[in-house]
Design a protein around this nucleic acid. Structure first.
Lengths: 225, 225
DNA sequence: GTCTATAAACAGATAGAC
DNA sequence: GTCTATCTGTTTATAGAC
């Protein structure tokens, strides 16, 4: 479907407007309440559209779900793709580590940030627990390329084989921290006695994760000079 | 299953049997598919009980949800409570660190293990994203006491203030890794090319987390002798 | 306590006018 | 493309026999 030079700007027919509104409302509501807990009536209402328009544009509720996933995949790919591509650490361990830290901090900003990305993050994380078409889409378009790059950088930084268990699981353990702080935010906030999750709180979390990255690299470096 | 002196043995009337079966089926299905995605018919069928019995015993679907949460809270408290109470590191940093590692490895075994605990873990993690009565129950009976103890041990091991940001968030970052490996298991398994999640895979994950714990302690130790 | 039968509300999907 | 009205199935909850 689509064309899509950047996203949907060039081919803005009349219907694409409500189509887009439905997808955005879908991402928001599916992310906030879950797929099953969200009714098509809610979505249509939130998008200021008619109930029947979901069937017209996407064939049904499940079609909307898939369209949301593809939208999320495209959006993320557009944001994170260029960043990953621009990284070229050569074979300098220090540069590789700096790049690794940069990517993780970027993911943290994306996942923990306040903006519209919050809906996308919620939707994505939720779908990761339900194997299916959406899972495959997000895995292929976001998880796999990002994780591969992370392994490459972490392998360079430590001098370890990028595809070893240590590096692959190590990268997951670091990225997992960020994801946990996203999912378990309510728990963390209650324990930390945070009223809201503002930039100051996000910064504190990032400091901890950054420390853990450096501790990992320092501890797992292969050749100690 | 069942028996369990500290749970429901003393007042084992006739109806308590189906009541228990409904709760167990509820935990399993709510955990696997989510609350909204699970119908009362499914639960009753899985528990070999009648649909009307849910309303009779719990007042309705929401009542069953709460009963499941209380059951989970009681169960976890019964398992983890004695362990936490038995720990007395005195003021020996090395002993405190060993105890911390022991607790986290225990949590990992619990969350990642194959057994019935898997249902409990799924149910618990799922409810953590939905603030409400269930959230409060699990937080008060499991998260808070365990996290407090973890902070105490980690504070002792590093020589830092147990209620400092560093220690509280650090404890979350370590426990969060384990929780992530539970939630994101499908992603990790696909990337690692694991067919199933057997004891060998759990052991590999535990090795990584253990390394991260030691790296954290080594890096954040206050008084370097 | 357990069951059948049914009520009342709600879900997603669709037909057809415009 | 968008709308209203409606169909069909399923949901939770309940009434009442046993």
């Amino acid at each position: 479907m689509s064309s899509d030079p950047t996203l949907f700007t060039s081919t803005e027919k009349a219907g694409d407007q409500t189509r887009m509104a439905l997808i955005l409302a879908g991402i928001r509501l599916f992310g906030a309440k879950g797929y099953e807990a969200t009714s098509t009536r809610e979505i249509a209402s939130a998008a200021n559209a008619n109930i029947a328009s979901i069937a017209y544009h996407f064939g049904g509720k499940e079609g909307l779900r898939l369209a949301c996933a593809q939208m999320v995949g495209r959006r993320i790919h557009g944001v994170v793709g260029p960043v990953l591509a621009s990284i070229d650490p050569g074979d300098d361990p220090a540069k590789a580590q700096a790049a690794f830290e940069l990517v993780i901090m970027g993911v943290a900003d994306f996942l923990l940030g306040q903006a519209e990305a919050r809906d996308i993050a919620s939707f994505m994380v939720r779908e990761m627990g339900v194997p299916g078409t959406v899972f495959d889409t997000v895995y292929a378009e976001f998880i796999l390329p990002v994780h591969r790059k992370l392994c490459l950088l972490l392998g360079l930084a430590t001098g370890q084989d990028p595809e070893s268990d240590l590096i692959r699981l190590g990268a997951f353990s670091i990225a997992g921290q960020v994801i946990y702080f996203r999912i378990g935010h309510a728990v963390v906030a209650r324990r930390m006695e945070w009223e809201i999750a503002g930039p100051a709180e996000i910064a504190r979390i990032k400091t901890i994760v950054l420390g853990n990255i450096r501790a990992f690299v320092a501890t797992n470096r292969k050749s100690l000079p």
